[in-house]
């Protein structure tokens, strides 16, 4: 029985989107982080973690979003990080991002940034 990653010959596959995309910075960082984690897990474990993503979720995620799930799953399984730590760090990021985008701050930053070139 084929698992969700085992795509060869799936008959419902449609047109191939050939649009070229440069990798986003976060995707490059993610690739670097994954390769830097060789001490914690090997590439076969990484593939297995991707394959184990629940099928409905697998279908909706982008290629590198699947990597994030695999990375997180393995680091937690191996005891390198905990789910709580990651959630907590996300909260810190959210708080900072929100603070930075208070309307008045955003406007003053934008104006400040343009002064040099426009005047």
């Amino acid at each position: 029985m084929s698992k969700v990653h085992d795509r060869g010959g799936w008959s419902d596959a449609g047109f191939i989107d050939k649009t070229e995309h440069d990798l986003a910075m976060w995707e490059k960082n993610l690739m670097a982080v994954c390769s830097a984690c060789a001490a914690h897990f090997n590439v076969d474990e990484f593939r297995r973690a991707i394959e184990d993503i629940e099928p409905d979720t697998y279908e909706t995620l982008s290629y590198f979003e699947r990597w994030v799930i695999a990375l997180e799953t393995l680091l937690i399984q191996k005891g390198v990080l905990t789910l709580e730590e990651i959630d907590q760090k996300m909260k810190v990021f959210e708080a900072r991002t929100n603070r930075q985008h208070l309307p008045d701050l955003a406007v003053s930053h934008r104006q400040g940034g343009h002064n040099d070139s426009q005047i």
Binding site: M1, S2, K3, D6, G8, G9, D44, R48, E51
Partner: peptide, 12 residues
Amino acid sequence: ITSGHRRTPGYI
């Protein structure tokens, strides 16, 4: 071989 991580595609 029907369980576990398999590096041989199902179609073959």
